[in-house]
Amino acid sequence: MASQSDPHGSAFSAAELEFLAEDEMVEIVPNIRMDPLNLISGDFGPFRPQIATQVPLWLAVALKKRGKCTIRLPDWMSVEKLTQVLEAERDSARDFQPLPFHYVEIARLLFDHARDDIPDIYMVRSLIEDIKDVRFHKIGTGLEIISERTYAVKLLNLSAMEVNIVRPFVAKALETFYKLDSPEMIQDAERRPDARTQAPDRGPRRPLRPR
């Protein structure tokens, strides 16, 4: 059984994110005949040979492992689309391209379990890796905008994995700025001038707001 993540670090563990990604829908082409499945998570099927149908990724992977279907590569994972996305990611220093919320996990699951259904797998894989790298770099530089006046950060088009990775830093940074900005903190600092010595590496000190 998957272990629980610590609720106060990153909210979700990688395994839990993968679990969530497994509920994303993909198209499969079964090679068997099977009645519809009436599952708790929904009704899927019926399954007929050569007739495409939509199922959650976990179901697709389970059938694939037993050699009962082929998985159709999602549109956004074609070499053509990914090349476009990568170019657009490189062109803009700030904006992120819309990709499925779980693109990292979906791509990994498909690489692991359906490699023979992916044409040009090496190309696709390296494109995904490149996109991931470019995006992570942008996130890194993008985080520099957080300052003492930041009460909210909009994370347009970030994916689940990316959100999860920046969460501890972003949350802590925003919280620290929020605390430093609160009136009690400013009074405290005035009352105890030696408080400064406790945080020598806080960077340039911000002028206190006139009261």
Binding site: E22, M34, L37, L39, S41, W58, L59, A62, R66
Partner: peptide, 16 residues
């Protein structure tokens, strides 16, 4: 067995 195992997987996911 395949159908049963798929139902079982769905059940396991919900229970998790």
């Amino acid at each position: 067995a395949l159908t049963v195992s798929l139902y079982q997987m769905d059940l396991d996911r919900t229970m998790f």
